[in-house]
Amino acid sequence: MDTHRQDLYPDLTASGGLGPAMKEAATWRGCDIGLSPWATDVIRIETARGYVSVDPATEERLFRVTVHIPGFTWEIGSTDDLGLLVEAVAAWREGMPFEELEAKFDFMELEEFARALETGEPTSLQWSDLLSSDF
């Protein structure tokens, strides 16, 4: 890690990287985040809802959470609280309904596409968005 990031993330540096810090925070909070034992700084967790990735911002202390499904990637929120982050990742993995996720984790921003994914209709929403686009 560079010096700038060390100043923003001393807890990550002390733990040996983002992966070990997330595992430690998850253990401390009694969460299962499903992180592979070898994860260090590139965090990508497989869930039934696609892959969740976490990456720290370089300009400020902020953990960005992104979801990836085949053909689509979208950011679902960001927080500076590592403990809250691991709780949200664990809840996502456990399949907590999106409305409950938004209510419990106010940093999460689950837009219309995420709701369509939950109901099993992302394709129709994608077509609707494309057909209504000015482009």
Rank of each mutant, 00 (worst) to 15 (best):
G95W: 08
E102I: 03
D80M: 07
A48R: 10
A57P: 04
I45R: 02
L101W: 03
F72W: 13
T123I: 14
F98Y: 11
W74P: 00
T47L: 08
G19E: 00
F135N: 07
Y51S: 07
V52M: 14
A103Y: 04
L85P: 00
D81F: 03
Q126F: 12
T119K: 08
E87D: 11
E60P: 04
M1H: 12
W127S: 08
H4M: 10
D80A: 15
K104L: 15
A88Q: 02
L8G: 06
D106G: 06
V52N: 00
G50E: 04
T123C: 03
H4S: 11
L62N: 05
P37W: 01
S15E: 15
G34T: 06
T47Q: 04
G50R: 03
L85E: 00
V54I: 15
G71H: 10
F72M: 14
A90M: 03
G77P: 01
M96W: 02
D2L: 05
D129Q: 13
P56R: 02
P20A: 09
Y51T: 12
S133R: 12
I76T: 09
G16D: 13
F107T: 06
G71Q: 12
A25M: 10
T40F: 00
P20N: 10
W28K: 15
V42I: 07
F107E: 06
F63K: 01
E94I: 15
L110K: 05
V52F: 04
G30M: 12
G16H: 04
M22Y: 03
L101N: 01
D134I: 15
G83Q: 09
L131N: 13
D134V: 14
E99P: 02
D106F: 06
F113Q: 08
V54K: 01
G77I: 10
A57G: 09
L117S: 11
G71V: 08
G16N: 09
R44K: 14
G77E: 08
S132P: 02
